[in-house]
């Protein structure tokens, strides 16, 4: 009986409010945690940027770029084991929260949510991509992921006789990542706002980084979770999301295709409403914020599961409570 009460309490709760506090705490830990001697790890599946002085950990992407900045002979020697080891550590971290790392923990994602709040409070309207543009743009993150693997390799190895890339392009994604420039600002560190005039490659990469950072601010102001749409970490996570312990499950038989879930989705995923065949509904752009579950009025149509255990389910009562329409709720359907 107690078990049902707890389940009911969770199902009726406001997850977005809970998420706000988790994000705030995570932001504090991943931007200032190092000052409190917190050490989490260096292969984390989100932007815990090592350029931030107070960061307690490191993002996996910087590690993988460093590791691949070597020769083929080194990669295919026992040294290559360290690459697999890093991937293993990344996966261990990733499996627990799956893509919820983006929705709940990533400081850059949190920052975008705060910019969205600011926009709302100022009364500006937001932009949503159309169906066709959505499909075209989502490819970009895979392209960036491919390049961040290819470029470090091409610095030390020649591909088909082509000249090697200059050393100035090392850790190419970090050089254009807005986290490198923006997150240190929260530590009062402005040292990442610079153009490196060493050679052409460094001028291009550092300038590109500043351009991306500026677009990040403007983009996040008009589009919810603007950068997540192009984030290579999101693409990498999706490759392993099927084996994550945390799952978002849909029961197509219970779905009425009302479209509430896709309307509240910050990223604008329409498949969550349209796809009634898939059970695992985690898409590559999903950040597992579970707003869709909150907005679903159909009993058990959407569920958050930890492996096979139901953690949070869509309920009619929860829907009415969260949206302040308790009076309209007439009790469970018979």
């Amino acid at each position: 009986m107690q078990k049902f009460k707890i389940k009911k309490y969770i199902d009726n709760s406001n997850v977005s409010r809970f998420r706000f506090w988790i994000q705030l705490l995570s932001f504090f830990i991943f931007v200032y945690g190092g000052y409190f001697f917190i050490e989490i790890g260096s292969r984390l599946p989100m932007f815990s940027c090592p350029y931030v002085q107070g960061s307690p950990g490191g993002c996996y992407l910087i590690g993988v770029q460093h590791e691949l900045n070597t020769t083929w002979s080194s990669i295919f020697s026992p040294r290559g084991i360290s690459i697999l080891k890093s991937l293993g550590i990344f996966l261990i971290f990733f499996l627990f929260l799956n893509k919820a790392w983006c929705g709940y923990v990533c400081p850059l994602g949190t920052l975008q949510d705060w910019i969205t709040r600011l926009r709302k409070s100022l009364g500006f309207s937001f932009v949503r991509y159309g169906e066709v543009r959505f499909k075209k743009l989502k490819v970009i993150k895979y392209l960036i992921l491919f390049l961040l693997i290819l470029i470090p390799l091409a610095i030390n190895n020649s591909f088909f006789g082509a000249p090697k890339l200059p050393h100035g392009m090392h850790t190419p994604f970090c050089q254009i990542c807005p986290a490198r420039i923006i997150l240190p600002l929260f530590n009062g560190d402005t040292s990442q706002i610079f153009v490196d005039f060493t050679d052409r490659s460094t001028i291009i990469m550092t300038s590109l980084g500043l351009i991306v950072a500026a677009i990040f601010f403007v983009g996040s102001f008009v589009k919810k979770r603007f950068f997540c749409f192009f984030c290579p970490m999101s693409a990498l996570q999706f490759l392993f999301s099927k084996i994550g312990f945390l799952r978002l499950i849909k029961d197509g038989d219970k779905c009425t295709r009302c479209g509430n879930c896709s309307r509240v989705c910050d990223v604008g995923i329409t498949a969550i409403a349209d796809d009634i065949l898939s059970k695992n509904i985690v898409k590559d752009d999903c950040m597992m914020c579970f707003k869709c579950v909150e907005a679903c009025p159909e009993e058990g149509a959407l569920k958050v599961k930890v492996v096979s255990f139901d953690l949070f389910s869509a309920t009619e009562e929860g829907f009415f409570k969260r949206y302040g329409q308790d009076k309209d709720y007439e009790g469970p359907k018979k």
């Binding site: 706002i193 610079f194 490196d196 005039f197 550092t206 300038s207 500043l210 351009i211 500026a214």
Partner: peptide, 17 residues
């Protein structure tokens, strides 16, 4: 390195965006 040019690029991009 130049922080001045960094800021210029950042501000111009923001304005254009």
């Amino acid at each position: 390195t130049s922080m001045f040019w960094g800021l210029i690029i950042f501000l111009i991009t923001t304005l254009v965006s």
